[in-house]
Design a protein around this nucleic acid. Sequence first.
DNA 1: TTGTAGGCGTTATCAG
DNA 2: CTGATAACGCCTACAA
Lengths: 347, 347
Amino acid sequence: MSSERFSSDIAVPTLEDVANMAGVSAATVSRCLNSPGVVTDRTRDRVMRAVRELGYAPNFGARALAAKRTNTFGAIIPTMENAIFARGLQAFQEELGKHGITLLVASSSYRSDLEEEQIRALVARGADALLLIGHDRTDEAYGILERRQIPHVVAWVCDHSQSRLSIGFDNRKAMKALTCEVLKKGHRSLGLITADRIENDRARERAEGLFEAMAEFGLTMDEIRIVEAPYSIASGAQAFGELMREEPRPTAVLCGNDVLAAGAISMAKKSGIRVPEEVSITGFDDIELAEIVTPGLTTVHVPHREMGRGAARLLLNLSNGGDPGPSIELTATIKWRASLGPAPSKS
Amino acid sequence: MSSERFSSDIAVPTLEDVANMAGVSAATVSRCLNSPGVVTDRTRDRVMRAVRELGYAPNFGARALAAKRTNTFGAIIPTMENAIFARGLQAFQEELGKHGITLLVASSSYRSDLEEEQIRALVARGADALLLIGHDRTDEAYGILERRQIPHVVAWVCDHSQSRLSIGFDNRKAMKALTCEVLKKGHRSLGLITADRIENDRARERAEGLFEAMAEFGLTMDEIRIVEAPYSIASGAQAFGELMREEPRPTAVLCGNDVLAAGAISMAKKSGIRVPEEVSITGFDDIELAEIVTPGLTTVHVPHREMGRGAARLLLNLSNGGDPGPSIELTATIKWRASLGPAPSKS
DNA sequence: TTGTAGGCGTTATCAG
DNA sequence: CTGATAACGCCTACAA
C-alpha cells in the first residue's frame, strides 16, 4: 500500500513492503529484525532475502516512536576546533561502539545557551544518554535532563562540592600543583592566560587552584596579571603579548590550556623572548601540541582516554537501569618538559 | 490522556499536554511551534507559556515520521583526532545553524566499511542531507544514498574525472605545484610520508601530483622513498626516522598532511637534523600546527572555511529541491614558511 | 484563526 | 510461531 511498486519505483521501502514480498505480516518482519531467535529459520530466510532485495532499512523515527529507545547517546563538547576533547571523545565512541550504540556529537562553542539548545536537540532526537563537559549550565538544561530522566554524566571535572555523577579530575588541585612547581622555581611574578571563566567551571577552577597556590606561598593578587582569551593559538599569542607589556613583567606565564600556551610560545619566539630563560610558560591538557612546540610544554597531563572510556561505561550502566556507583576521580599529573625553568635571577 | 498529571507526574510532556494546559487543540500548539505567524498573538502567548512551564520539547521521532523531514544534516569525517577537518566542519555547522538545521557528526576512522555503517546510521536517523569526504567509498554506500535520494556532497576534493557533486580543491594539482617548488630549489632526492592510499583518494591524488611533478623534472621513481603512516604526529615522526636511514638520504621530505609533517619536524629535531639546512620538510593543509612548529611549515593552504560554508549552501539548496549547480573548485595555495630551503649543495 | 481526523513506519500485546 | 491491531507523538489537509 505504501509503495505501489511500479517497475521503477524509487520509494523508500517500508516494513510492509518487505512483508508483502516475503508473504508474511509486518509483525513477523519486525521480529526477524529484532529477535531473530523467535522465528522459524525458513521464514527468516525468506524475510531476510526480501530485506536485502529491497535494500530495506528501518525508519529510525518510527522505531524510536514505537520502542522508546534509540541506541543513541549524545555528547556535547565546547568545541571541535581544537584537539582538547578529541581524544576523550574518540575513546568514548569506541567504547559505545562495542555495545552497538551510536554517538551523536554536538558542540556548544562554550556558550551555555547554545548548549541548552543542543541538549534539547539531542534529547528530542531521542538520545538515550548524554555526556556533558563541566558542571556549568543553565537550570533549564538540568531541568530537561531531570524531567525526562535522561541518564547523563559530567566529565572533565571532579568537583567534590557537586553531587552530580561525574568522571574526571580535580582541575583546581591539578593547577595548584603545577603552580606550586612554578613557585618552587622561584617565580614571584606570574601571568595567567585563561579562557573566559564565565560559564566555564574548568577554567574557573584552574584559576582558583593557581590562586590557592599563590596564597600558600604568601603571594597576593598584586603579583599576578590575568588575561582572558578565547580558545585559539592566535589569541593565546596576543594575550602573551599583552602580558609582556605589563610592569613588572611576569617571569612565568601559566596558561589555562595547551592551545593558549602554544600561542604564547609562538609569540615569545616572534618577540625574541627566550623560553624558559626569560619567561617560563606552562600549559594544561597535554595534547600532542604540547610535545611539538619548542620548547616542549610543561603541562598537566589529563587522562583523556580513561575519561572517555569511563564515561561510556557509566552511561551504559545507567541507561540499562543499573547503578553507576559514585563519581570517579581520575588523577592528572604534571608532565615536565622544557618550557618551565627557574626564575631569572634579577628583577 | 497521555499523562494523567498527578501532582508529581514526571512523564515527558507531549503536544497534547501542552494543548490541555493552554486550553487549545494539539493542532494549534503544533502551529505555534512550526508556523507562529498563522496564530493569534494571544493564543500563542498562552501556548508558549504552557510549553515553558511543562518544559515541552517535541518528540523528534514523531515529528520526523509525520513531517518526513528532520532538519538534520549529517557529516562523516575520517577522524576527529586531529584538526584537519575541524575548521571546515565548524564553518559547515555555523552555516547550517543559521538555517535552523542541526548537524550530526560521525567519524569513520578512514575505513570505508565503517563509513558505510555511519551512512546507514545517519540516513536511518533521518539525516536530510550528508557531507562526505572524498570520493572513495563502497558501492553499497552510494547505493543507499541513491535509493533514498539523500542529497549529498563530496568535499575536500575536486576530481574532474568524477561526476558526483563536490566542493573542494584539486589535491593532485596542489601537491604537484608544491613539489615543483621543492624541485626548483634543487632537491633531487625526495621522501614522501603519506597516509595509507587505499580507500583515501586525497592521499592518492596528492601522491600522484608529486609523481607528476617529478616526471616533469625528469626524475624517476628511483629518486623517491615512500613511507605510509597513520595520521598522527608520532607516526609521522617514526616515518621520518625511517626515511633518514635510507640511502641516499632524501634532502626533502614531503608529507601528505601537516600532522605527519609536524611529526617529521619533531623527529628531525630529536635526531639533530637541521631543517631546512640538511633536510627540507613540507606539509599539507595549513592547520594551526603548521604555524606553530619550528621551523614553520611550508605547506599547502586549504580553504577549509570556504569549503565548509560552501558545502552547507549546496546541501541546503539541494534539500530544498533547488538546483545546486555544478561542482565547485576552490583553489589551494602554497603557504611559504621556513621548513623548505634549497637543497644542500653536495649530494 | 482554530479544531477534527487521518496517517506516518514500527513495536508490542494479544489472540490464534 | 505468526497475524491482527492498538499505540507511539506529531503534522497537515480539510472543515468549521
